[in-house]
Simulated scan of single mutants.
Amino acid sequence: MAASSIARSPVNPIVRHVICRASPSDHLSKTSLTIHGHYPKRCRHVPLLASLHGDTTRNNDRNAQALELQRVLDDFPYDVIPNDPTMLPTPLSSTQLSNSVSDGSRVRVAYQGVPGAYSESAAEKAYPNCEAVPCEQFDTAFEAVEKWLVDRAVLPIENSLGGSIHRNYDLLLRHRLHIVGEVKFAVRHCLLANHGVEVEDLKRVLSHPQALSQCEDTLSRLGLVKEAVDDTAGAAKHIASYKLKDAGAVASTTAAMIYGLNILAQDIQDDSDNVTRFLMLAREPIIPGIDRPFKTSIVFSLEEGPGVLFKALAVFALRQINLTKIESRPLRKQLLGASDDSNNGYPKYFDYLFYVDFEASMADEKAQNALRHLKEFATYLRVLGSYPVDTSMI
């Protein structure tokens, strides 16, 4: 594993070397980066500047990989950005994937957003006492895991009110990460504003599109103009930073505390049962078992034709396997405008991918037989992960 090029900041490097260490959270042996150097003890995040360009490669022999990484990165001149301990960590960006100093005893988990985001709370529920690493975009969180900068990523996949997060379905296909778990998190939205601002002073409200849609009735009743931003906590941070008097944010109570905002109203979501399901992603799959409830996620494509999807889903029904989710997404770069013989003269516009979750472990013979059956007529089939079901009380 090697970095092809590094963009460095003109500050004094104080980190001396990088060593490879197996993450204590993993059952499988793998390599993670731990930074050592002479720096004072600070808050849990100390951002570093280090841009990695190009894809990293992985050797089949993990011991050889660790030795090679040690050789290449020994005395590597990473630079540390001086940071006020009271400041919050800067989210990782796709063009500048920053590393954070870790003491090696906690799992490092990437999430999308800024501190105070619901995703951060979900990451801490999935991995208690983890070192949560904020990322600007969903893509960045995937890349951070692939580049060994973090151990895991926890990302939303669906909400009980807003539906599926389509971007993450597409990214699951684009990247080679594995689903190793799920966590369900109850989302309770609040209307936040700067101190001294009342509800009647507000003209607009900022938040993530999903959060705005989940509070549609309340926000419409208040007559507020809805403005979409990247994440809920980011909206809270924005109105606090610019001391806006005419704008509020839909975010969590944690975000209100972090950014010093006043809570004008609590539980403003349209339905009290507002739950978001998050996926836990890793570089390696876990070994599925049959000792507890398991779920398996797959993605497949089919040739067009009458009853083909029915036949695909029948492989599960014939074996009494319950489906919990099915999502269809267009297969990109497959737009066709001309008709062909297989469509009986009708224009063929899209090829589709089908994402399916079913209640069975890949250690179960009936699940293996179902996928063997499906593979007989699927044009593409990939297992995204087989992992324990989150049965905890939300």
Rank of each mutant, 00 (worst) to 15 (best):
F300M: 11
M280A: 12
F294N: 00
P293R: 06
D291Q: 11
D217F: 10
H208W: 08
M280G: 03
M280R: 10
A256F: 12
A240H: 00
V308L: 14
M257W: 11
S220M: 12
Q266F: 05
A228R: 04
L219D: 00
E284G: 06
E284W: 09
T218M: 10
S297D: 07
G223Q: 03
Q210T: 13
T253I: 11
L212E: 06
S301T: 15
I263K: 09
G260M: 00
D217S: 12
A235W: 08
G234A: 10
S241C: 01
Q266Y: 07
T276N: 00
K243A: 14
I268K: 02
P285Q: 00
L206F: 14
F300T: 12
V308P: 07
K245P: 08
P288I: 02
K245V: 15
S301D: 12
G260S: 02
G307R: 08
S252Q: 06
L281A: 03
A236M: 06
A240K: 05
V229E: 01
L302A: 04
D267F: 06
N274M: 03
A256S: 15
L264Y: 07
I258H: 01
L219V: 02
T254Y: 09
A249D: 01
L264F: 09
T276D: 04
K237C: 02
R277V: 14
A251Y: 10
K237A: 09
R292V: 00
S297Q: 11
T296M: 01
P285F: 00
D271F: 09
H208G: 03
T232S: 15
D291L: 08
G305I: 04
N274Y: 10
K245E: 15
F278N: 05
A251Q: 01
A235D: 10
E303K: 13
L219G: 00
Q210I: 09
G234R: 03
L281I: 03
D246R: 15
V299L: 05
Y242K: 14
D270Q: 12
E227D: 08
V225A: 12
